[in-house]
Structures are given as C-alpha cells and as structure tokens.
Design a binder for these strands. Sequence first.
DNA 1: AATGAATGAGTATTCATTCAT
DNA 2: AATGAATGAATACTCATTCAT
Lengths: 194, 194, 194, 194
Amino acid sequence: MGKKAAIIHSAIEVFQEQGIEKTKISDIVKRAGIAQGTFYLYFPSKLSLMPAIAEVMVAKTIEIVKDTVDNDASYPKQFEQMVDAIYEVNREYYEILAVIYSGLASTEHIREWESVYAPFYEWVSEKLEAAKKEGAIRQSIKPDRTAKLIIGLVESTAEQVFLYAQHDENEANRQKEEVLEFLAYALHFQNVEG
Amino acid sequence: MGKKAAIIHSAIEVFQEQGIEKTKISDIVKRAGIAQGTFYLYFPSKLSLMPAIAEVMVAKTIEIVKDTVDNDASYPKQFEQMVDAIYEVNREYYEILAVIYSGLASTEHIREWESVYAPFYEWVSEKLEAAKKEGAIRQSIKPDRTAKLIIGLVESTAEQVFLYAQHDENEANRQKEEVLEFLAYALHFQNVEG
Amino acid sequence: MGKKAAIIHSAIEVFQEQGIEKTKISDIVKRAGIAQGTFYLYFPSKLSLMPAIAEVMVAKTIEIVKDTVDNDASYPKQFEQMVDAIYEVNREYYEILAVIYSGLASTEHIREWESVYAPFYEWVSEKLEAAKKEGAIRQSIKPDRTAKLIIGLVESTAEQVFLYAQHDENEANRQKEEVLEFLAYALHFQNVEG
Amino acid sequence: MGKKAAIIHSAIEVFQEQGIEKTKISDIVKRAGIAQGTFYLYFPSKLSLMPAIAEVMVAKTIEIVKDTVDNDASYPKQFEQMVDAIYEVNREYYEILAVIYSGLASTEHIREWESVYAPFYEWVSEKLEAAKKEGAIRQSIKPDRTAKLIIGLVESTAEQVFLYAQHDENEANRQKEEVLEFLAYALHFQNVEG
DNA sequence: AATGAATGAGTATTCATTCAT
DNA sequence: AATGAATGAATACTCATTCAT
C-alpha cells in the first residue's frame, strides 16, 4: 500500500508548510492518514526520516534535470538547462532544501548524505566526462571534483536567492545569468563544431 | 563585564563541543558564569542567539581573510590566499558553521542573515572591483554578483570537504586546487604586467 | 478507567490539603496514579480543571441538600434544613470552596460558572415555586430571582464563618440562627394549616 | 511623595486591566513610575499588597455609601440608597472586588480581612441600631450579625450580576429590586411616623 | 501489520526578590 | 531612600516513543 512512501510524502508537505522544527510526528501521521504507532513500523525515529526525504528530493532533482536537459543540444546549452532546472527545483522546495543542505539538521546522518547525493554528482560528472572527451570543455577539468564544484556553486546561489531574497524573480534571473557566464568561463567552453 | 559577549562566546564553545540540539541554556550560562535569568536580559530566546553568533563568525572569517591576503601580491595570488583562508576557517569551525547555516535557515531570522553576511560580500566585491579596474580579470565581471558566487562556491565546497569528508587533508587540498583552477578560469585572470 | 474522574477526584483532595497555589500538576497526577502527560489528554491546562471541580462540588452540595431536606416537612422546616445542609458543606469543604470561588473568578471560565450553578438555583427556585403555590410564603416572591438571593445569602455568611472565623462552632450556630430568622421574615412564612 | 499610595493606586489600575494573575510587579512599578526595587521598600512581598488594596477598596465603598445615604431620609429609603451605592461600586470595580471577596486570593491574609471589613460592618451595624431604637425595624434584629448578613447578601448578588451576567443593566436593576423587597420584609420596616 | 492511549523525561522561560551602587 | 541589573528557584507543558490490544 506504500505507507512508507505516504509518510515521506506527507512529511515533505508538512515540513514545507510549517517548517521542520515545528512539525510533530502527529502532524505527519495525521496527514498520511495512519496511526501514530504505525510510523515506527517504518522508521525507527523522527531523525531517520531525513535521509529518506533527502533521497526523494535528490531523486526528484535528478529527474527534473534529466527531463530538462536535451542531450542533443550543445554543451553550453545543456549546462544552461541544468542550471535552469536546479533553480526551478530550488524555487519550489527552497525551505526543505535549506535543511537538506545544512547537513540534514544534525551530524548524526552525515555518512548517508554522501550516498544520497552520489547519483547527482555522478550524473554531472558523466556529463563533464563526455564534454571533455568531445573537447567541448577544457581538458584540465577533473570531472568528479568539478561536478561537486558546479552543484555546490549552483545550489548555494539558488539558495541565496530563494531563501534570503524571498523569491524576487528578477533577482533570481540576473543571478542565474551571472552564474551561467561564470560557469562558461570556468569550464572554458570550446566551439566544438568550428 | 560584557555579559552579552560572554554569552555569545560561551555559546560558540558549547555548541562546538556538544552540538546545538543538545545544548541547554543552562550549559551556556554555566560556562559564561552568569545566572540563568541573566541570559534573558540580553536575548529574548535561545534561537535569537544565532544571528549574534553568526555575526561573530563572519567577522572572524573576514578578519582571518584580511590577515591572510597580501594586498600587494598579484590578484591570482590574492584570491588563492582568500580561498586558503576560507578553507582554514571552515577547517576549524566546520561544526559551528554547519549549525549556523541550519540554525539561521530553519528559523525566522533569515532577514538578519543578509545583513550579517553583507560585510563579507562587500569585501570580496571591492577586491573584484579593484582587480577589474586594473584589468586583472575579465571586464564582464559584475563585482557584486560575482562576490556572492565566489563565496558560495568556496564555502559550499569547503563544507563538503570538512563536514562530510571528515577532515581528510589530502582530499581538502585536492579539492581546493580544483576550486582555484576553476576560479582562475571563471575570472579569466590576465597577466597584467605582460 | 475513569481517568478524567480520577484526576478531578485527586485534584480536590490535593487542593484541600495544600491549597491551589502550591499544588503542582505532578502532585495531582501522582495521587491519581497516572503519568504527567496523561493529564493533558483530558485537560488542556491546569486552570481548565476548575470548572470540572466546581461542577463536582455543586453536585455534591445539591446531593447533600436533597438528602437533608424532608419534602414532607413544613416549609419553614425545609428551609431550615437547607440552610443546615449548606452550612454543613461549607464546614467541610470551606477551603476548596474558597479556591473555586477565586479560581473561577480570576480566569476566563466565568461563562461556565453560570451553567455549573444552574442546577442549584433551579432546585431552590422550584422549592420556592411550590411553597408559593401552597401559600406558604408571600406571593410577591419571584422564585428565580429569590433563589439566587437565598443561595448568595447563605453561602456568603457560611463562608464568612468558616473561612474567617475559623470554625468557631458557637459563632457558626448563632449566625445560622440569625440567617434563619432573617430568611423567615424575608419570605414571610404563613401558617398554612391555620 | 506618597509612593506607597502610588503603588496601591497603580496596582488597582493594572489589576483591573489585565487581571491579578497576569500582573507582574514590573507592571505595577512601571505605571507607578518607580524602580523595581522601590516596591520592596514599602511592601515586603507581592501578596502583602492585597490587604492594602482591600482596605482602600472598602474605604472607597464606605465613602460612596456615606455620600449616597441621606441620614434624614426614612430608613427604608436609606437602605435603598445603601444598596444603590454598593451596586454602584460593584459595577465599577467588579473584577478587583471578586478577588477581594474570594478571600484575598489566598488564605495567608485572612486575619487581616476581618479588620479590613470591620469599619463597613460597623457602619451598617450602627445604622441598624439606630433604626431599631426608633422602632423602624423589627426589634428582634441583632445589629452586629444582621450587618454581616446584609452586606453579604447585597454584595454577593451584585457580584453575580456584574461578574457573571456581564453588566446587563436591566438584569442588575431587576435583581436590585428583588433584593430591596427581600430586605424590606427581612427587616420588617415599620411605618414609624404612623 | 495496525492502532492510539499512555507514557515521562526533558527544558525553556518567568518573575518575585535581592543587593551593590 | 532609590535604583535596576542580576539572580535562580520553580514548573507547566510538549512530544517522541512505547506497548497492550
């Protein structure tokens, strides 16, 4: 019946509405339509919910990024699409993402963090690898490391804009432009088809 | 005297030692050597401590950055020194910084965050402005926006390394190298004296 | 079973023993044999206990009054018995009654007070109605209003005697005599069987 | 300068506005325009303020009663004026009087209560004595005891009306009428000048 | 697997009172 | 007499977790 999924789904919604600190287990189970005790059949504690949510959020991000990026477009275009997608996800889920970024709210679950983010790093890394092979970006790029740089760069600026500038669309777009130009120079895009 | 400062100082220490969640007001006042009630003469609540702590930490960061950066060195060198300094601060205070990020994000003190970080943004912005004027970096750089990019980039990667990779020095240095190269291309350093 | 009743019962006892101000929730639950949190499943706050206690006390008063009054006796005799009964209850529960008066008055539970006292007013009112019909008291009596007068009169003098005169039995009896005579004239008892 | 009087005056005002439970010493001294510590130069504790307030309130009541009652009027008229006056005071100060009636909110100061109320009892008692001497009321009246009865009767019904019926003027007047008639029969007014 | 009533440890906050100035 | 910063004891209430059904 997917009660586990129901709990995660419910938690994401409630967290978004009232913040994580103020959310009680009872709020989550109420919305999920299950009993208080049932929660503990699927999660050993409240905190153990976090990695599961992070996983879902990262998966959601990857999905949107994949859907947005056109693999047949030029690499500059593809990275632009990627930045667009990440900004989009942040626009919608800025509050819950803030918690995920800040280390899952406690240092207990740090180990899991790496594994949760791994698929995202990997996807960007592969994209960089391919671009490098085709000579579309500078050859000194180390895909694995740069993947982390790029994700850190884009997400931290997106967070700044949506969390602290409170959804000023103009501001968001201008900052995104700057990120794209910054990224273009940093990767040193080559006109491959020249 | 300076009980407010004593509280902040004490709180930073205790937070570092046992994490924010597990820290009681009583722990903070005990170390500060004041009475429980005195805390509330200076701060209306436990959470309202956060922006004050953040302010101190940012001030500390700026101070270290300023001390490390040699204004007479070449700009690439200066930015390298800046990255070194930021990594240094994160190495030492990674836990309290994580706490600040999450503490500020999860409460209603977000507005204050901008003003707390402002002096840091400003310093980097001025540095970029000067470099731009001297033709040391590409002219399309917008100092204000790029300052935020750079700080976001450096801090997020530093956090990744020290919080999640748990102080692997090798890893830290390699990642820092990649950041520096990334930054060099992104700013498009010019050999001014050529 | 009956945890709500257990809480009320326990609270009445503890209040009587140590006064309301000095009674902690923990005292109440300890005696009731339940956990601290369980209290809040049945009452939203400490103060919300008061109307429930008042209800029980008024019910107890009515019960004793009904038990004491002989419906076949003459009306003067019946009212004498009623006064006796009210004095009796005040003798035994003077402290908790003072608490209820002050507890109810000083909070926002005033509205409930009326409904709590209603059955007592009603009982006296019906008694007056019957007496009036039989011509045992003056015909200008308005039962509803006079019921409130009588209860106010008797309870306020009983409170004066037991709370302030500290259980001086002689004093109590003399004052009761005066009340009865006062009441006799006020109601203008008629010798019905004359 | 009358700081003691200023404190009492201020306390009465604040109590009326926000209730006694919710009033802090700091509220009282703020309005009185004095420092926190100064309070304790005049009163040893918060609770010790109560009898002083009661004294002022009773004095105020007596004053208004004396001002209202025309000593040259007939006794029925005089008692009517007295009831009017007591209702008037209760209309204005119902909240603070509720606390005073209910035993000064705690049983600590009971002894003082009697002495505080004494002058009021005395005044009524003397009035009854005089009326009795002139044959204006029944000769079986015991002035001392009946004084307490009358004050208890009038004040308790006034309280019922103003505290619980929430200032319904119509209700107040009808109830007052009933009290007067009740009183007239109870005292058994004689037409002295017949 | 599911329930939800019951648990009880845990702590931020208040505010009457003190006392050095 | 006056101040007001400092004190610290005292406790109502919350909510994650358990467990009998």
